[in-house]
Simulated scan of single mutants.
Amino acid sequence: MWGYVKWTLIALIVATFGAFLHYTLPQTDIVRITNTFNRQTTIGSNWMFYASSDSGSAETEVRDIRFIEAVRPNDKVIVYRNEDTGWVWPPYFKYDSSNLQAEASNLKSDKATPQWVKVTHYGWRIPLISIYPNAVSATAIEGPDVRIIPWFNIVFLSFLALALLMVRRMWLQFRERTIDPLIDEVEDKFDEVSLEGQQAARKARGLVARLFGRKG
């Protein structure tokens, strides 16, 4: 039973950490920008997926947010928000949302004469609760078949894997040198107490037997 609980907890931790990385790390889309606009948007229970307000309040508020509408090469649409991140999480240190909106507006094109754009962003698009990925940059590219290699993610995840391996190795060494000897010592103490208890029990039984034997 404990084995199932243990592996369930490990799976939940891994899934949560994986979702956190997937949301936070930069992702790249190849799209055709069709529109840019500002819209009064109500921020409520989904506040954690938007930039922090000046007041830092999680209460419902209406905020003017920039948006970028685009179309993928397979004709599926995608909408990005365009907000500064400041110095808070995630650490993109983005302060140029106005410039990015101007660049995106300049890159708009139609289906007849498409201008393909590489949009770097983080976050998810969940229409049910009005969550949008936050665009970080927009760069014109030659066409929809341009190959983009996520070098940052490759390097970051490699260092993360190396760090986790080092932490695991340190933990195993700490366990071998510190925890395992303590466990062995405790087990030896329990064995000694158990042996003393058994000896005391045998002595008590012998005493009772002698007492009853005398009475008999």
Rank of each mutant, 00 (worst) to 15 (best):
V5Q: 04
T8M: 12
I10W: 06
I10N: 02
A11F: 11
A15V: 14
A15T: 12
F17E: 08
A19G: 03
F20W: 11
T24C: 03
T24E: 02
L25C: 01
T28A: 01
T28N: 03
T28H: 03
D29L: 12
I30G: 04
R32E: 04
T34S: 01
T36K: 01
R39W: 05
R39T: 03
T42Y: 03
I43Q: 10
G44C: 08
S45G: 06
N46A: 07
N46P: 06
A51N: 11
S52K: 09
D54F: 13
S55Q: 07
V62G: 06
V62H: 13
R66I: 02
R66G: 04
F67D: 06
A70W: 05
N74K: 13
D75V: 08
D75A: 09
K76D: 11
V79K: 00
V79R: 00
R81L: 12
V88E: 03
P91Y: 07
P91V: 03
K94N: 05
K94P: 02
K94E: 09
Y95T: 01
Y95E: 00
D96P: 02
D96S: 05
S98G: 03
N99K: 14
L100M: 07
E103N: 09
A104W: 10
S105E: 14
S105V: 01
K108C: 08
K108H: 07
D110G: 09
K111I: 11
T120F: 06
G123H: 03
G123K: 02
R125V: 01
I126Y: 08
I126F: 04
P127A: 06
S130P: 01
S130N: 10
A135Y: 09
A135N: 09
A138E: 12
A140Y: 08
I141L: 02
G143L: 02
G143A: 01
D145N: 13
I149V: 13
P150M: 03
P150V: 04
F152C: 02
N153H: 06
F156T: 05
L157P: 05
L157Q: 11
L160S: 13
L162V: 11
L164H: 08
L164E: 07
M166K: 15
W171K: 09
L172E: 14
F174D: 00
R177N: 10
I179D: 10
I179M: 13
P181G: 05
P181T: 07
L182G: 08
L182H: 15
I183V: 15
E185W: 10
E185V: 05
V186H: 13
D188F: 12
F190M: 13
F190Y: 14
D191P: 02
E192H: 09
S194R: 12
G197Y: 13
A200G: 06
A204V: 15
A204H: 14
L207R: 14
A209K: 15
A209Q: 15
R210K: 14
R210Y: 10
G213F: 08
R214F: 12
G216Y: 09
